[in-house]
């Protein structure tokens, strides 16, 4: 198990919160909550160790432009592939958008 943290610039803070996925084998849980400042702060807890560069590259691609709302993004990961991770994050942001 390993815990990683990342920060990216973001748009205005989100309203509400959202959840996607479960901590099942090859899957992950994503929790989104509003952040006070214009940042996306990410905390990843993953069952697979030594994949820092893969996570960093994935988030750098997803959050390169500060278009997503500012959130606190928590991930509980049980060996999901980068594709599944992207999907769950998109799902959570969609759920957040649908709240309004």
């Amino acid at each position: 198990m390993q815990t990683l943290a990342f920060t990216f610039p973001a748009a205005a803070p989100a309203h509400g919160r959202a959840l996607a996925g479960v901590v099942a084998s090859g899957d992950l849980e994503v929790l989104l909550e509003p952040a006070a400042d214009r940042h996306i702060s990410i905390e990843v807890t993953t069952s697979v160790e030594g994949m820092e560069r893969t996570w960093a590259a994935l988030f750098a691609r997803l959050f390169a432009e500060p278009t997503r709302p500012a959130v606190r993004l928590q991930i509980n990961d049980s060996g999901a592939t980068p594709g599944v991770v992207s999907l769950r994050i998109a799902q959570a942001f969609d759920a957040l958008a649908q709240e309004h």
């Binding site: 198990m1 479960v22 901590v23 807890t45 069952s47 928590q74 509980n76 990961d77 049980s78």
Partner: peptide, 13 residues
């Protein structure tokens, strides 16, 4: 679970 190196789920399932 974290003390045993196992990832938790926020609602404990």
């Amino acid at each position: 679970l974290p003390r045993q190196g196992i990832v938790t789920q926020a609602d404990d399932g």
